[in-house]
Design a binder for these strands. Structure first.
Lengths: 140, 140
DNA sequence: CTCTCAGATTAGAACGATTCTAAACTGTTG
DNA sequence: CAACAGTTTAGAATCGTTCTAATCTGAGAG
């Protein structure tokens, strides 16, 4: 039995419905691209290019809209590593990242592997929302 | 004996010379602002505003140039926490940050306090350049 | 099956942060 | 103090992203 390489239409529809989003052609096709094979990192531009390359007709504006809606719905996670552009990650579980600055490349680090100790009390009236660890690497 | 609140002209000149930068009026005045009182976080815009407010005449372009030159020279550290704008930190030592998203506010966490364990081997041919930890906090 | 309309898509304009340009200015060195 | 490389600057340009207003479409009502 081969590895699943593409989400079924039904799964995709359910995923969107659960998020309160209409299963439109564009969103379905983007879901198809996003969850086709394993975890995936992208920027709005790169996803838009990939979509066009795959023959999926969708505007850049819709890619931005979709990325944000999916993020809000918990289907994607936004990763801030580069001041110049926003990255998104299909892996929404507990994990961190290597970031290869020169190539703009993100690589997952499973959450079990990394432990952050010694975080002080947040300032009065504040609560910790999330801890992001970015391991910046360079070609040696 | 009061706490030093302003860097002497000589120190500032030496600092710039060491970085291979000519001690121009603008750079001297910016150094004055930057290291006047303890650690400081800023964006290009905020530093520019502060400069104008302090009667320091300098263009936004020069603020950007200076921030980058100082960063390159190791006098400042760039902190990536927000996709929308770049932050800079006068504290270049080993430390991490709280980031209050709603207010765009950065707060230092001394390096001794935080420990990151379990970082896997970087990908082949890569070497770890730096590990950044951002503790995102929200008003409780 | 068709009507209807809230929700979705889109091209292009607008935007905000940052970088670039090319002209004017200023430390430094001889 | 001449001369030039380095610096500053206003304004234009660029880049990613968001907004706008017009058009389109999914899905429930009849």
């Amino acid at each position: 039995m081969g590895k699943k390489v593409r989400e079924s239409g039904m799964e995709a529809v359910a995923r969107l419905r659960a998020a309160g989003l209409r299963p439109t052609r564009q969103r379905l096709e983007l879901v198809g691209l996003l969850y086709a094979d394993g975890d995936r990192h992208m920027t709005a531009e790169s996803l838009h290019e990939d979509a066009l390359a795959a023959g999926v007709q969708v505007s850049l504006a819709t890619v931005y809209n979709t990325l944000h809606q999916f993020t809000e719905a918990g289907l994607l996670r936004q990763v801030v590593v580069d001041a110049a552009r926003s990255y998104f990650d299909t892996n929404t579980g507990d994990h961190q990242h290597f970031f290869v600055e020169d190539e703009g490349l993100l690589i997952d680090i499973p959450g079990e592997h990394i432990a952050v100790a010694g975080v002080p009390e947040p300032p009065k009236g504040m609560a910790v929302d999330r801890i992001d660890v970015v391991v910046r690497v360079k070609r040696a």
